[in-house]
Design a protein around this nucleic acid. Structure first.
Lengths: 344, 344
DNA sequence: CGCCAAATTGCATAGCTATGCAATAATGAT
DNA sequence: ATCATTATTGCATAGCTATGCAATTTGGCG
């Protein structure tokens, strides 16, 4: 018993031979707008169909230097927001003829080799959704002069553009919201220390509280942006933190961990005993068992903005682009509303 | 003000010129195991570094026919299991030197053009995580003779291998578990009609119930594998379905929707009034507000199996491979345990 | 039928790397 | 010092498509 021979794609020359025309004719048949007579076109199409010919994009990449590939680097720390983002990105990239190469980077260890690999595929751009992108990593990525788009990062260069949520302003809004809901003792549940997003959210929250005359703010420190980390941190630190009556969390997954720690480990009621809020508005935030007040950052808008910037960068390589700040909006749900009874 | 010139990668010839050696020498320096003297190597590396040379993989693809690219097709219906799966896939593919091209397919509309695009990038294989893959789509994909791996699909051909959970057996176990927990009136919350996974789970569940002497099984029909669909279906059909006291759902997201409908719309208690179970064991299933009994299907194992099969397919193209069934295990949590008090 | 413009077709080439083969250099043995 | 052996190097080429340019055909029209 013999295995089939390895798959061998038919080339345009093969098709040309079968159709009795030149290779150019084949190429033109598959190039929109090129000059081919109807008769030739028909012969070519028939031969192509018989050989199951599919033009390769590879030689084009070699000639043009454009691969139509975008690398997407994810952190994969289990934040569902990434999944939404990725899907939206795919949908908006598709009509523009781009394909995504998706990579996961644990931390930013090994970025040098990562950048090299991406360069070897000649990707047209890199979109990084990492929560943390160190300066050294950024400079490694920038060495090949590939346009890079990051989120909530502080890095800037002609090759790196950052798109950020309006973390400070939205967090200030959240402070006011919690104050209006009668909170007195505030806590902020922070993500990893080196996450700029987390820092900015804390800063905005703290400043707004101070302006309202609240000096005391307890900062809890979670190690990762995960449910488990939110749960454990809250469970272990809530009491010694002085039992705050409102916890604002650096993102939604943390908030959900915090909520469950309050409910099932500390025996408290949300929102009756403690108000809880998050950031991101992941789908799970609207699940009724959590029904979490949070800051929404629509992936559609985020991706649309990212691609607008990206197109500029591709059109004018090396030209310095302005960083962009998106407006986030507060979504009020029952996790911060003592009087509301849940309805459906 | 002038924009920088468009990025132009240095070629091996450029490096060779600068280093005063032949292009071959450059290539050999970057080819492990090739014959280069230490002196030449040093000169090349220095020149390469000066020019920021990174060998392109594109000409290799052209010569070898292998792109080291794997296409991953996702359904993107908001099932968090996909995210886990994708991440695990990335991690196991990385050390083997493969990169992933990720695509989302809404339904299986437009598969023909999708297959063509993937073929034009000369992807080495396609991994489809679509819940639904129609026969026509499959045959379109198979036209280019690219190895395809699907999950929970009934399609078979030398180019398509399916990896399935042991849906029937696991569902039978679930039936026994629910019986043991004292359930009397059973319901199954079905996913989209054309999903084989959903059908098999229903079949296994029903058969096991019948063998235990339970003839009555209410089947609820959700339109999509989503929280919202699970919620709405349960809300609208629970009463007229005769108020079952146990609902087994085709997957976890459906189950969570069902739970919240029972709790917040119908005012019932889970597990006191109704037992609820799901399938997949997504991370959210262990979040304490749900704490859902389910069938686990570790992504690590799933991906490991998929890649083992894939390697065989790549080694022996066109050789018929056996489909694989994985064992799923029941994870018991409090959503089916009336007596347990939640602890943390 | 003849001529000009327009459409179509074919030829030749660029783009970049890995590798077989032949040529050259280095090494080691005697 | 001479020769045999091994290591290194360079040359030339395959792999496939899009496209500028020149050559050819077609079509229109007087």
């Amino acid at each position: 018993m013999k295995a089939h021979p390895a798959r061998k794609y038919a080339s345009s020359t093969d098709v040309a031979r079968l159709a009795g025309v030149s290779q150019s004719a084949v190429s033109r048949t598959f190039t929109p707008g090129a000059s081919v007579s109807a008769a030739t076109r028909a012969k070519v199409l028939q031969a192509a169909s018989a050989l199951e010919y599919q033009p390769s994009i590879i030689p084009q990449i070699m000639l043009s230097g454009k691969s139509k590939l975008i690398a997407v680097v994810l952190g994969g720390l289990g934040n569902p927001y990434y999944a939404e983002f990725l899907q939206e990105l795919a949908q908006q990239l598709e009509p523009r003829g781009y394909k995504m190469i998706v990579l996961y980077a644990q931390s930013d260890y090994g970025f040098e080799v990562l950048a090299a690999q991406l360069a070897s595929y000649r990707v047209d751009a890199i979109i990084s959704a990492l929560a943390v992108l160190s300066s050294t990593s950024a400079s490694e990525l920038t060495a090949f002069k590939i346009p890079i788009i990051t989120f909530n990062s502080d890095e800037r260069s002609p090759w790196i553009v950052s798109i950020s949520a309006n973390n400070r302003h939205a967090s200030a809004q959240m402070a006011q919201h919690l104050l209006a809901r009668g909170a007195k003792r505030f806590a902020f549940l922070c993500g990893p220390v080196d996450s700029p997003a987390s820092q900015h959210r804390l800063a905005g929250f703290r400043t707004a509280l101070q302006q309202a005359g609240v000096e005391q703010l307890i900062v809890l420190q979670a190690d990762h942006f995960t449910y488990e980390s939110g749960f454990e941190t809250t469970k272990q630190c809530f009491v010694e933190a002085g039992k705050p009556d409102a916890i604002y969390c650096a993102n939604d997954v943390l908030a959900m961990g915090a909520m469950d720690a309050l409910r099932f480990s500390l025996g408290l009621n949300v929102p009756k005993d403690v108000l809880v809020a998050g950031f991101d508005d992941i789908p799970e935030a609207s699940w009724l068992s959590y029904d979490l007040t949070t800051i929404t950052q629509p992936p559609v808008l985020l991706v649309k903005t990212a691609l607008r910037v990206l197109e500029k960068m591709l059109a004018q390589p090396g030209q310095k682009q302005l960083s962009v700040t998106l407006k986030g909006e507060l979504v009020e749900r029952s996790s911060t509303n003592r009087s509301s009874s849940r309805k459906a």
